[in-house]
Design a protein around this nucleic acid. Structure first.
Lengths: 218, 218
DNA sequence: GTAATAAGTTAGATTAAACTAACTAATTTA
DNA sequence: TAAATTAGTTAGTTTAATCTAACTTATTAC
Protein backbone atom coordinates (compact mmCIF):
# COMPACT_ATOMS: atom_id res chain seq x y z
CA UNK A 1 0.00 0.00 0.00
CA UNK A 2 1.29 3.44 -0.90
CA UNK A 3 0.98 6.51 1.29
CA UNK A 4 -0.95 9.57 0.22
CA UNK A 5 2.32 11.37 -0.49
CA UNK A 6 3.59 8.50 -2.61
CA UNK A 7 0.35 8.42 -4.59
CA UNK A 8 0.68 12.10 -5.36
CA UNK A 9 4.20 11.64 -6.69
CA UNK A 10 3.15 8.73 -8.90
CA UNK A 11 0.19 10.62 -10.31
CA UNK A 12 2.25 13.72 -11.01
CA UNK A 13 4.94 11.63 -12.70
CA UNK A 14 2.48 9.98 -15.06
CA UNK A 15 0.78 13.22 -15.98
CA UNK A 16 4.09 15.00 -16.61
CA UNK A 17 5.96 12.26 -18.44
CA UNK A 18 6.77 12.91 -22.07
CA UNK A 19 6.55 10.52 -25.05
CA UNK A 20 9.62 8.69 -23.76
CA UNK A 21 8.03 8.33 -20.35
CA UNK A 22 10.57 10.67 -18.81
CA UNK A 23 10.18 13.42 -16.21
CA UNK A 24 12.74 15.65 -14.54
CA UNK A 25 13.13 16.18 -10.83
CA UNK A 26 12.66 19.87 -11.41
CA UNK A 27 9.34 19.54 -13.22
CA UNK A 28 8.01 17.22 -10.55
CA UNK A 29 9.19 19.60 -7.88
CA UNK A 30 7.31 22.48 -9.49
CA UNK A 31 4.13 20.53 -10.11
CA UNK A 32 3.94 19.20 -6.57
CA UNK A 33 5.21 22.41 -5.00
CA UNK A 34 7.77 20.37 -3.10
CA UNK A 35 11.47 21.26 -3.05
CA UNK A 36 13.89 19.25 -5.19
CA UNK A 37 15.80 17.51 -2.39
CA UNK A 38 12.53 16.12 -1.07
CA UNK A 39 11.65 14.87 -4.54
CA UNK A 40 15.05 13.20 -4.89
CA UNK A 41 14.65 11.37 -1.61
CA UNK A 42 11.13 10.25 -2.47
CA UNK A 43 12.42 8.94 -5.81
CA UNK A 44 14.92 6.78 -3.96
CA UNK A 45 12.12 5.45 -1.82
CA UNK A 46 9.88 4.72 -4.81
CA UNK A 47 12.82 3.13 -6.55
CA UNK A 48 13.27 0.78 -3.58
CA UNK A 49 9.58 -0.10 -3.97
CA UNK A 50 10.11 -0.84 -7.68
CA UNK A 51 7.76 1.89 -8.76
CA UNK A 52 10.35 4.18 -10.34
CA UNK A 53 13.64 3.77 -12.20
CA UNK A 54 16.08 6.12 -10.57
CA UNK A 55 19.67 6.93 -11.49
CA UNK A 56 21.48 10.03 -10.29
CA UNK A 57 21.28 12.94 -12.69
CA UNK A 58 19.22 10.94 -15.18
CA UNK A 59 15.57 11.62 -16.09
CA UNK A 60 13.03 9.78 -13.95
CA UNK A 61 10.81 7.03 -15.31
CA UNK A 62 7.96 5.01 -13.84
CA UNK A 63 8.30 1.23 -13.91
CA UNK A 64 5.40 -0.69 -15.41
CA UNK A 65 4.15 -1.31 -11.88
CA UNK A 66 4.46 2.39 -11.06
CA UNK A 67 2.70 3.41 -14.25
CA UNK A 68 -0.20 1.10 -13.50
CA UNK A 69 -0.61 2.37 -9.98
CA UNK A 70 -0.47 5.96 -11.22
CA UNK A 71 -3.03 5.22 -13.93
CA UNK A 72 -5.32 3.70 -11.35
CA UNK A 73 -5.19 6.85 -9.24
CA UNK A 74 -5.98 8.95 -12.31
CA UNK A 75 -8.81 6.54 -13.08
CA UNK A 76 -10.23 7.12 -9.61
CA UNK A 77 -9.84 10.87 -9.98
CA UNK A 78 -11.62 11.05 -13.32
CA UNK A 79 -14.39 8.64 -12.41
CA UNK A 80 -15.00 10.79 -9.34
CA UNK A 81 -15.15 13.98 -11.40
CA UNK A 82 -17.65 12.34 -13.73
CA UNK A 83 -19.72 11.09 -10.82
CA UNK A 84 -19.77 14.50 -9.16
CA UNK A 85 -20.98 16.14 -12.35
CA UNK A 86 -23.38 13.48 -13.60
CA UNK A 87 -24.81 12.08 -10.37
CA UNK A 88 -24.40 14.82 -7.83
CA UNK A 89 -25.06 17.96 -9.82
CA UNK A 90 -21.73 19.74 -9.56
CA UNK A 91 -20.42 22.07 -12.24
CA UNK A 92 -17.26 21.01 -14.09
CA UNK A 93 -15.39 23.87 -12.43
CA UNK A 94 -16.10 22.57 -8.92
CA UNK A 95 -15.00 18.97 -9.11
CA UNK A 96 -11.23 18.99 -9.33
CA UNK A 97 -10.43 19.74 -5.70
CA UNK A 98 -12.97 17.23 -4.39
CA UNK A 99 -11.73 14.51 -6.74
CA UNK A 100 -8.19 15.30 -5.61
CA UNK A 101 -9.23 13.98 -2.20
CA UNK A 102 -11.58 11.17 -3.22
CA UNK A 103 -8.94 9.65 -5.54
CA UNK A 104 -7.05 8.37 -2.49
CA UNK A 105 -9.90 6.28 -1.14
CA UNK A 106 -8.93 2.63 -0.85
CA UNK A 107 -11.92 0.62 -2.02
CA UNK A 108 -12.05 -0.99 -5.42
CA UNK A 109 -15.81 -1.60 -5.03
CA UNK A 110 -16.48 2.10 -4.46
CA UNK A 111 -15.04 3.01 -7.84
CA UNK A 112 -16.53 -0.04 -9.55
CA UNK A 113 -19.94 1.14 -8.38
CA UNK A 114 -19.30 4.65 -9.69
CA UNK A 115 -18.15 3.26 -13.02
CA UNK A 116 -21.24 1.09 -13.34
CA UNK A 117 -23.67 3.84 -12.30
CA UNK A 118 -22.09 6.11 -14.89
CA UNK A 119 -22.37 3.47 -17.62
CA UNK A 120 -18.61 2.93 -18.00
CA UNK A 121 -17.67 6.36 -19.35
CA UNK A 122 -14.54 6.81 -21.49
CA UNK A 123 -14.03 10.51 -20.82
CA UNK A 124 -14.25 12.77 -17.79
CA UNK A 125 -16.13 16.09 -17.71
CA UNK A 126 -13.09 17.91 -19.08
CA UNK A 127 -12.65 15.53 -22.00
CA UNK A 128 -9.71 13.64 -20.52
CA UNK A 129 -9.69 9.86 -21.01
CA UNK A 130 -10.48 7.65 -18.03
CA UNK A 131 -7.86 4.86 -17.79
CA UNK A 132 -9.41 1.40 -17.91
CA UNK A 133 -9.02 -1.20 -15.17
CA UNK A 134 -5.74 -2.37 -16.68
CA UNK A 135 -4.32 1.13 -16.52
CA UNK A 136 -4.64 1.68 -20.25
CA UNK A 137 -5.34 5.27 -21.26
CA UNK A 138 -5.38 6.72 -24.76
CA UNK A 139 -5.68 10.37 -25.66
CA UNK A 140 -7.52 11.08 -28.88
CA UNK A 141 -5.59 13.06 -31.48
CA UNK A 142 -6.71 16.54 -30.53
CA UNK A 143 -5.22 19.82 -31.72
CA UNK A 144 -5.01 23.00 -29.74
CA UNK A 145 -7.44 25.67 -30.94
CA UNK A 146 -4.42 27.97 -31.09
CA UNK A 147 -2.99 25.82 -33.89
CA UNK A 148 -6.05 26.23 -36.11
CA UNK A 149 -6.20 28.56 -39.08
CA UNK A 150 -8.71 31.24 -40.01
CA UNK A 151 -12.01 29.87 -41.37
CA UNK A 152 -11.55 26.43 -39.82
CA UNK A 153 -14.58 24.89 -38.13
CA UNK A 154 -13.85 22.49 -35.27
CA UNK A 155 -15.48 20.86 -32.25
CA UNK A 156 -14.36 21.73 -28.72
CA UNK A 157 -13.57 18.32 -27.19
CA UNK A 158 -11.40 18.82 -24.14
CA UNK A 159 -9.66 21.40 -21.99
CA UNK A 160 -6.09 21.19 -20.76
CA UNK A 161 -6.37 23.20 -17.58
CA UNK A 162 -8.99 22.10 -15.06
CA UNK A 163 -8.52 24.91 -12.57
CA UNK A 164 -11.61 26.54 -11.17
CA UNK A 165 -10.65 29.95 -12.51
CA UNK A 166 -10.14 28.80 -16.08
CA UNK A 167 -13.36 26.81 -16.15
CA UNK A 168 -15.31 29.68 -14.63
CA UNK A 169 -13.93 31.85 -17.39
CA UNK A 170 -15.16 29.36 -19.99
CA UNK A 171 -18.56 29.28 -18.28
CA UNK A 172 -18.73 33.07 -18.43
CA UNK A 173 -18.23 32.81 -22.21
CA UNK A 174 -20.75 29.98 -22.45
CA UNK A 175 -18.11 27.64 -23.83
CA UNK A 176 -18.65 23.94 -23.16
CA UNK A 177 -17.51 20.61 -24.58
CA UNK A 178 -19.07 19.44 -27.85
CA UNK A 179 -19.59 22.96 -29.14
CA UNK A 180 -18.81 23.84 -32.76
CA UNK A 181 -16.33 26.72 -33.10
CA UNK A 182 -15.43 28.71 -36.18
CA UNK A 183 -12.21 30.70 -36.31
CA UNK A 184 -13.10 34.03 -37.91
CA UNK A 185 -9.85 35.94 -37.59
CA UNK A 186 -6.41 35.64 -35.98
CA UNK A 187 -4.71 38.78 -34.74
CA UNK A 188 -1.08 38.47 -35.89
CA UNK A 189 0.17 40.79 -33.20
CA UNK A 190 -0.80 38.72 -30.13
CA UNK A 191 -2.48 35.60 -31.58
CA UNK A 192 -5.87 36.54 -30.19
CA UNK A 193 -8.58 34.65 -32.07
CA UNK A 194 -12.00 35.92 -32.98
CA UNK A 195 -14.28 32.91 -32.80
CA UNK A 196 -17.94 32.37 -33.52
CA UNK A 197 -20.00 29.75 -31.68
CA UNK A 198 -23.51 29.44 -30.26
CA UNK A 199 -24.92 32.94 -29.99
CA UNK A 200 -21.51 34.58 -30.20
CA UNK A 201 -20.40 35.94 -33.52
CA UNK A 202 -16.91 37.33 -32.94
CA UNK A 203 -15.78 36.45 -29.45
CA UNK A 204 -12.14 37.35 -28.73
CA UNK A 205 -10.15 34.53 -27.10
CA UNK A 206 -6.56 35.20 -26.07
CA UNK A 207 -3.69 32.95 -27.07
CA UNK A 208 -3.37 31.79 -23.46
CA UNK A 209 -6.96 30.56 -23.62
CA UNK A 210 -6.75 29.06 -27.12
CA UNK A 211 -3.72 27.00 -26.14
CA UNK A 212 -5.81 25.32 -23.44
CA UNK A 213 -8.72 24.36 -25.68
CA UNK A 214 -8.44 21.02 -27.48
CA UNK A 215 -10.43 20.55 -30.63
CA UNK A 216 -11.06 17.95 -33.30
CA UNK A 217 -12.45 17.86 -36.83
CA UNK A 218 -16.22 18.24 -37.08
CA UNK B 1 -7.84 22.87 9.92
CA UNK B 2 -7.37 19.62 11.80
CA UNK B 3 -5.20 16.77 10.62
CA UNK B 4 -6.59 13.34 9.85
CA UNK B 5 -5.18 12.04 13.13
CA UNK B 6 -6.73 14.89 15.10
CA UNK B 7 -10.10 14.26 13.48
CA UNK B 8 -9.95 10.62 14.50
CA UNK B 9 -9.28 11.53 18.11
CA UNK B 10 -12.15 14.03 18.19
CA UNK B 11 -14.58 11.56 16.67
CA UNK B 12 -13.57 8.78 19.04
CA UNK B 13 -13.90 11.12 22.01
CA UNK B 14 -17.43 12.14 21.11
CA UNK B 15 -18.55 8.59 20.50
CA UNK B 16 -17.02 7.34 23.76
CA UNK B 17 -17.99 10.17 26.07
CA UNK B 18 -20.48 9.33 28.81
CA UNK B 19 -23.46 11.37 30.02
CA UNK B 20 -21.07 13.82 31.72
CA UNK B 21 -19.16 14.19 28.47
CA UNK B 22 -16.14 12.45 29.95
CA UNK B 23 -13.72 9.91 28.46
CA UNK B 24 -10.60 8.29 29.87
CA UNK B 25 -7.23 8.17 28.21
CA UNK B 26 -7.35 4.41 28.47
CA UNK B 27 -10.67 4.04 26.66
CA UNK B 28 -9.53 6.34 23.89
CA UNK B 29 -6.30 4.43 23.62
CA UNK B 30 -8.16 1.15 23.20
CA UNK B 31 -10.69 2.49 20.70
CA UNK B 32 -8.05 4.08 18.50
CA UNK B 33 -5.54 1.28 19.01
CA UNK B 34 -2.95 3.88 19.89
CA UNK B 35 -0.79 3.63 23.01
CA UNK B 36 -1.64 5.79 26.04
CA UNK B 37 1.42 8.06 25.93
CA UNK B 38 0.56 9.00 22.36
CA UNK B 39 -3.00 9.79 23.43
CA UNK B 40 -1.76 11.98 26.28
CA UNK B 41 0.45 13.98 23.98
CA UNK B 42 -2.32 14.43 21.43
CA UNK B 43 -4.64 15.63 24.23
CA UNK B 44 -2.14 18.34 25.09
CA UNK B 45 -2.05 19.38 21.48
CA UNK B 46 -5.86 19.45 21.17
CA UNK B 47 -6.02 21.34 24.44
CA UNK B 48 -3.70 23.99 22.98
CA UNK B 49 -6.12 24.21 20.04
CA UNK B 50 -9.04 24.70 22.46
CA UNK B 51 -10.74 21.52 21.32
CA UNK B 52 -10.29 19.55 24.55
CA UNK B 53 -10.18 20.33 28.28
CA UNK B 54 -7.13 18.56 29.63
CA UNK B 55 -5.83 18.27 33.17
CA UNK B 56 -3.34 15.64 34.31
CA UNK B 57 -4.97 12.54 35.73
CA UNK B 58 -8.49 13.92 35.19
CA UNK B 59 -11.05 12.57 32.71
CA UNK B 60 -10.94 14.18 29.26
CA UNK B 61 -13.71 16.39 27.91
CA UNK B 62 -14.33 18.04 24.55
CA UNK B 63 -14.84 21.80 24.53
CA UNK B 64 -17.95 23.07 22.76
CA UNK B 65 -15.77 23.78 19.75
CA UNK B 66 -14.31 20.28 19.89
CA UNK B 67 -17.73 18.71 20.26
CA UNK B 68 -19.03 20.56 17.22
CA UNK B 69 -16.09 19.55 15.08
CA UNK B 70 -16.47 15.94 16.19
CA UNK B 71 -20.20 16.00 15.47
CA UNK B 72 -19.51 17.36 12.02
CA UNK B 73 -17.17 14.47 11.26
CA UNK B 74 -19.79 11.99 12.47
CA UNK B 75 -22.33 13.81 10.32
CA UNK B 76 -20.10 13.34 7.29
CA UNK B 77 -19.57 9.68 8.17
CA UNK B 78 -23.26 8.91 8.52
CA UNK B 79 -24.37 10.89 5.49
CA UNK B 80 -21.78 8.97 3.51
CA UNK B 81 -23.05 5.61 4.79
CA UNK B 82 -26.57 6.59 3.84
CA UNK B 83 -25.44 7.74 0.41
CA UNK B 84 -23.53 4.54 -0.22
CA UNK B 85 -26.55 2.42 0.66
CA UNK B 86 -29.30 4.52 -0.89
CA UNK B 87 -27.62 5.95 -3.97
CA UNK B 88 -24.83 3.55 -4.77
CA UNK B 89 -26.31 0.19 -3.94
CA UNK B 90 -24.02 -0.96 -1.16
CA UNK B 91 -25.16 -3.28 1.62
CA UNK B 92 -25.20 -1.87 5.16
CA UNK B 93 -22.34 -4.22 6.06
CA UNK B 94 -20.03 -2.74 3.43
CA UNK B 95 -20.21 0.96 4.12
CA UNK B 96 -18.39 1.54 7.38
CA UNK B 97 -14.84 1.27 6.12
CA UNK B 98 -15.50 3.43 3.06
CA UNK B 99 -17.26 6.09 5.15
CA UNK B 100 -14.32 6.01 7.54
CA UNK B 101 -12.25 7.44 4.69
CA UNK B 102 -14.82 9.71 3.05
CA UNK B 103 -15.61 11.44 6.36
CA UNK B 104 -12.28 13.28 6.16
CA UNK B 105 -13.02 14.98 2.86
CA UNK B 106 -12.89 18.74 3.17
CA UNK B 107 -15.76 20.10 1.13
CA UNK B 108 -18.94 21.37 2.73
CA UNK B 109 -20.71 21.37 -0.66
CA UNK B 110 -19.96 17.68 -1.19
CA UNK B 111 -21.86 16.71 1.94
CA UNK B 112 -24.58 19.31 1.35
CA UNK B 113 -25.22 17.70 -2.02
CA UNK B 114 -25.39 14.23 -0.45
CA UNK B 115 -27.77 15.49 2.21
CA UNK B 116 -30.04 17.08 -0.39
CA UNK B 117 -29.99 14.06 -2.73
CA UNK B 118 -30.93 11.86 0.22
CA UNK B 119 -33.80 14.15 1.24
CA UNK B 120 -32.22 15.29 4.53
CA UNK B 121 -32.26 11.95 6.36
CA UNK B 122 -32.31 11.86 10.16
CA UNK B 123 -30.85 8.37 10.57
CA UNK B 124 -28.06 6.41 8.93
CA UNK B 125 -28.43 2.83 7.62
CA UNK B 126 -27.66 1.43 11.06
CA UNK B 127 -30.27 3.56 12.82
CA UNK B 128 -27.79 6.04 14.29
CA UNK B 129 -28.83 9.70 14.24
CA UNK B 130 -27.13 12.02 11.73
CA UNK B 131 -26.02 15.20 13.52
CA UNK B 132 -27.53 18.33 11.98
CA UNK B 133 -25.45 21.20 10.58
CA UNK B 134 -25.20 22.77 14.02
CA UNK B 135 -23.72 19.58 15.44
CA UNK B 136 -26.92 18.64 17.25
CA UNK B 137 -27.50 14.92 17.54
CA UNK B 138 -30.19 13.16 19.58
CA UNK B 139 -30.51 9.45 20.15
CA UNK B 140 -34.05 8.16 20.43
CA UNK B 141 -34.85 6.30 23.65
CA UNK B 142 -34.05 2.79 22.52
CA UNK B 143 -33.71 -0.28 24.71
CA UNK B 144 -31.42 -3.20 24.08
CA UNK B 145 -33.24 -6.32 22.96
CA UNK B 146 -31.39 -8.09 25.77
CA UNK B 147 -33.36 -6.00 28.28
CA UNK B 148 -36.74 -7.11 26.98
CA UNK B 149 -38.90 -9.70 28.69
CA UNK B 150 -40.55 -12.81 27.35
CA UNK B 151 -43.64 -12.15 25.20
CA UNK B 152 -42.67 -8.58 24.43
CA UNK B 153 -43.12 -7.40 20.85
CA UNK B 154 -40.78 -4.66 19.71
CA UNK B 155 -39.39 -3.06 16.56
CA UNK B 156 -35.73 -3.41 15.63
CA UNK B 157 -34.61 0.20 15.14
CA UNK B 158 -30.83 0.35 15.33
CA UNK B 159 -27.70 -1.68 15.82
CA UNK B 160 -24.82 -0.77 18.10
CA UNK B 161 -21.98 -2.50 16.31
CA UNK B 162 -21.46 -1.61 12.65
CA UNK B 163 -18.66 -4.06 11.93
CA UNK B 164 -18.86 -6.06 8.75
CA UNK B 165 -18.88 -9.39 10.60
CA UNK B 166 -21.77 -8.50 12.87
CA UNK B 167 -23.87 -7.09 10.04
CA UNK B 168 -23.15 -10.09 7.85
CA UNK B 169 -24.35 -12.25 10.71
CA UNK B 170 -27.59 -10.24 10.86
CA UNK B 171 -27.97 -10.57 7.10
CA UNK B 172 -27.57 -14.33 7.39
CA UNK B 173 -30.48 -14.35 9.85
CA UNK B 174 -32.49 -12.01 7.62
CA UNK B 175 -32.62 -9.39 10.36
CA UNK B 176 -33.01 -5.79 9.22
CA UNK B 177 -34.14 -2.47 10.65
CA UNK B 178 -37.87 -1.85 11.04
CA UNK B 179 -38.63 -5.52 11.62
CA UNK B 180 -41.09 -6.57 14.31
CA UNK B 181 -39.57 -9.01 16.81
CA UNK B 182 -41.34 -11.11 19.42
CA UNK B 183 -39.40 -12.54 22.37
CA UNK B 184 -40.65 -16.11 22.79
CA UNK B 185 -38.35 -17.41 25.49
CA UNK B 186 -35.25 -16.38 27.45
CA UNK B 187 -32.78 -19.05 28.47
CA UNK B 188 -31.88 -18.26 32.10
CA UNK B 189 -28.58 -20.09 31.89
CA UNK B 190 -26.88 -17.92 29.20
CA UNK B 191 -29.53 -15.29 28.35
CA UNK B 192 -29.97 -16.65 24.84
CA UNK B 193 -33.28 -15.41 23.44
CA UNK B 194 -35.64 -17.32 21.21
CA UNK B 195 -37.18 -14.71 18.93
CA UNK B 196 -39.83 -14.87 16.23
CA UNK B 197 -39.81 -12.48 13.25
CA UNK B 198 -40.55 -12.64 9.54
CA UNK B 199 -40.47 -16.27 8.51
CA UNK B 200 -38.58 -17.35 11.61
CA UNK B 201 -40.52 -18.79 14.50
CA UNK B 202 -37.96 -19.51 17.20
CA UNK B 203 -34.60 -18.15 16.18
CA UNK B 204 -31.92 -18.37 18.88
CA UNK B 205 -29.99 -15.12 19.40
CA UNK B 206 -27.12 -15.07 21.88
CA UNK B 207 -26.82 -12.46 24.61
CA UNK B 208 -23.84 -10.95 22.80
CA UNK B 209 -26.07 -10.35 19.79
CA UNK B 210 -29.15 -9.18 21.75
CA UNK B 211 -27.07 -6.56 23.53
CA UNK B 212 -26.21 -5.01 20.18
CA UNK B 213 -29.77 -4.77 18.89
CA UNK B 214 -31.67 -1.60 19.80
CA UNK B 215 -35.43 -1.77 19.84
CA UNK B 216 -38.43 0.44 20.54
CA UNK B 217 -42.10 -0.03 21.29
CA UNK B 218 -44.24 -1.04 18.34
C1' DG C 1 -5.11 1.42 55.57
C1' DT C 2 -1.59 -0.57 53.14
C1' DA C 3 -0.26 -3.41 49.16
C1' DA C 4 -1.26 -4.61 44.61
C1' DT C 5 -3.08 -3.25 40.28
C1' DA C 6 -4.59 -0.11 36.85
C1' DA C 7 -4.34 4.31 34.73
C1' DG C 8 -1.73 8.17 33.33
C1' DT C 9 2.64 10.78 32.51
C1' DT C 10 7.49 11.82 31.24
C1' DA C 11 11.54 11.16 28.65
C1' DG C 12 13.65 9.72 24.84
C1' DA C 13 13.68 7.09 20.22
C1' DT C 14 11.76 6.28 15.53
C1' DT C 15 9.70 7.13 10.93
C1' DA C 16 7.73 9.76 7.12
C1' DA C 17 7.82 13.74 4.75
C1' DA C 18 8.97 18.02 4.52
C1' DC C 19 12.76 21.88 4.76
C1' DT C 20 17.56 24.80 4.12
C1' DA C 21 22.42 25.23 3.11
C1' DA C 22 26.06 23.75 0.69
C1' DC C 23 27.93 21.10 -2.73
C1' DT C 24 28.36 18.74 -7.58
C1' DA C 25 27.04 17.71 -12.32
C1' DA C 26 25.07 19.06 -16.56
C1' DT C 27 23.71 22.47 -19.79
C1' DT C 28 23.68 26.91 -21.91
C1' DT C 29 25.76 31.08 -23.38
C1' DA C 30 28.98 34.30 -24.78
C1' DT D 1 35.86 26.26 -24.58
C1' DA D 2 35.52 28.52 -20.29
C1' DA D 3 32.19 30.88 -17.41
C1' DA D 4 27.68 31.28 -15.90
C1' DT D 5 23.44 29.22 -15.07
C1' DT D 6 20.39 25.56 -14.08
C1' DA D 7 19.47 21.00 -12.35
C1' DG D 8 20.31 17.54 -9.05
C1' DT D 9 22.37 15.61 -4.74
C1' DT D 10 24.07 15.27 0.10
C1' DA D 11 23.95 16.33 4.78
C1' DG D 12 21.65 17.77 8.46
C1' DT D 13 17.26 19.90 10.70
C1' DT D 14 12.21 20.07 11.71
C1' DT D 15 7.48 18.52 12.69
C1' DA D 16 3.71 15.24 13.34
C1' DA D 17 2.57 11.09 15.02
C1' DT D 18 3.82 7.12 16.61
C1' DC D 19 6.48 3.89 19.94
C1' DT D 20 8.93 1.72 24.52
C1' DA D 21 10.75 2.01 29.14
C1' DA D 22 10.48 3.90 33.36
C1' DC D 23 8.16 6.52 36.59
C1' DT D 24 3.96 8.59 39.20
C1' DT D 25 -0.81 8.87 40.63
C1' DA D 26 -5.21 6.84 41.44
C1' DT D 27 -8.10 2.94 42.41
C1' DT D 28 -9.17 -1.62 44.16
C1' DA D 29 -8.78 -5.48 47.10
C1' DC D 30 -7.85 -7.64 51.07
Amino acid sequence: MNSLAEENYLKAMLSLSNDKGEVNVNELSKRLEIKMPTVTSMMKKLSAKKLVYYQSYKPLRLTEKGRKEAAFIIRKHRLTEMFLVEKMGFGWEEVHSIAEQVEHIQSAEFFEKMDKLLGYPKLDPHGSPIPDKNGKMVWKQYRKLSECEADEVVKLSAVINTSKDFLKFLNSRHLSLGMKLKVKFIEQFDQTMLVSYGKYDKEALSHIVCERLLVEKV
